[in-house]
Structures are given as structure tokens and as C-alpha cells.
Amino acid sequence: MRSKSFGEIKNISKHFTKKESLEMFKKMCISRNFEFNTKDAFDKGYIKMPIYLSVGEESVSSAISIAYKKPHIFAQHRCHDIYLAFGGEIVPLIDELLHKPSGIAKGMGGSASIHSPKIGMFGHSGLMGDQIPIAVGYALGSKQKVLAIMGDASAEEDYVISSMGYAASKKLPVLFVCTDNGLSILTKVAVRRNWSMVNVAKAFGMDAVEITDDPWLIMHHVKKLAKNLPSFINIHTTRVLWHNGTGQDSEPEWDRFKIVKEDLKNLGLEKQALKIEQETKEFIDKLWKKQLKK
């Protein structure tokens, strides 16, 4: 079922404006370059704590942030990309990873428990999936739009499933997202369960879809799902690097970043995309260099 084209709708990228496509791509570039710099700093020994990188998965948060604006955000450990996609400031996240008091959580959050009141993002406690009931409670208490992001393994926590059921029963304004890289550390999803989250969500009476990580496809569905909350989207994506740290065991099942660049070329946006890619890289590299020197 996992594939680079699962759930694909032909020519879906053409349904979006040039501006939306390039904004989405820029977010992907920010996240990817940020993570490569994090990897570099880690490999050189500047970072002395566990890190959870999102390389390969960046299309998910980048697309969602365009289609689902200004939610209160509850995510888990793999969250640099989410923070950045929703407009989190870059330097305080670099500082957080470098254990500085000027970090976004003053060093308490590290890589896995970052937060930002500015963008409405709450920190994670380290218990996988506990952000989902908390997100549901936040929606219950605030009646405001919430984004609740889980991994394919956290989705298996009983409290995730039961709180999704509660959100459905009480019609709470939550978009549930499963960033499904098919892995719980190293254990593949098929070893862990014979059921799918999309069926669980549908059984709760929610609108729910299961797709690949094509960012235009994600934007298309999220825009629709956002009209009838709570709803659920399961997105198959690939984690390129280790669960924790910077190693790489094998080539990813597909390279979404490369595919997106091809798609942009087909949309006649090759030049602009290349410029964004280069400028973003230079910009992020410079920021990291500066913070590392301090």
C-alpha cells in the first residue's frame, strides 16, 4: 500500500496557484536545509543530546501549514519541520539545539520538546502520543482550531484512539494527522498491526483519507477535511535518517524532494524553484554558521 503515488490525483498540482506551490516548496527547503545543518552540527559534536530529524518527511508539514492556517499545534518528538513550516523563528531553534539559554525552550526542550507560544505550538512531554488527548482537551476547552500530529506508531497508543473517538463524539475542531513513515524506530508497521488508522477514524464517523506525501495532494485533502472537523489524514512518507541521530541505513523508498522539483519543472516553475532552493540553503547555512561561532 505504501508507495510514492498512493492516492494520487492526476494533475493535482495544477489546481494550486504559483504562489502556493512556491511557498510550499520554500518551506520544504527551509526544513530540509535546517535538518542538514543540524546533522552537520551533530556529526561535528556541537549537539550533545538526542535529535530527531525530519529529512524526507518535509512535504507533510509544509503542505499542511499552507492548507490549514493558524491552528494550535500539538506535535511529538519529530517536530523541527512542523515548527519551521508554521513560521517558528529559526535562530531560537538553532540555539535550542546548541543548548543555549536563548533557545526556544531555554534548553529544556532540546530537539524533541520544542514549543512556541508565538505560533501556538505546545511542547511534547516525551510520552509518545500523549499530545493527542491533550490536543483534544485543548479543542474542548478553547473551541478553537487544533492540529494534532502523531506518528504511525504513536497512533497505536490506546489514548490516541480513544481521544480521537471522543473528539468525534463531541464534534471538536481538530485535524488529526498521522505522519506515517511506516516505522516505530526500526519496527515496520506491518509487524505491529493488521489494521489501518484511516479505518479507525472512519469507524468513529470522521472524514478520513490515506495518501502519499505529494504536497499538492495533501493540500487538496486538508482543505477539504478542514471544512468538516474533526477529521483525519494518514500520510505515507519516508524517514531518510535514523530515528534518533544522523545515520542512514538505506536509500528511502522514494525521494519526495526530487519528485517535487520535477513537478515544479512540469508546472513551468523550474527556475524559480532553483532560485528558492539555492537562496534558502545559503540563508540557513549562514544562520547556523553564525550561531555556531557565538
Binding site: F122, I132, A135, G137, S163, G165
Partner: peptide, 22 residues
């Protein structure tokens, strides 16, 4: 607010309501 019988998520839902300032 009446919660479902899911005790583990019930605690989390209450915590979320606290973050929302209630």
C-alpha cells in the same frame, strides 16, 4: 462535561483543557 470511560485519555483531555485556560 461527561467524558468517555477511556481513563488514560481522560487525564490528557483534562490537561488540554487546562492549557486552554479553563
Amino acid at each position: 462535561v461527561e467524558l468517555s470511560m477511556a481513563d488514560v485519555s481522560g487525564g490528557g483531555i483534562a490537561v488540554g483543557a487546562a492549557l486552554a485556560g479553563r
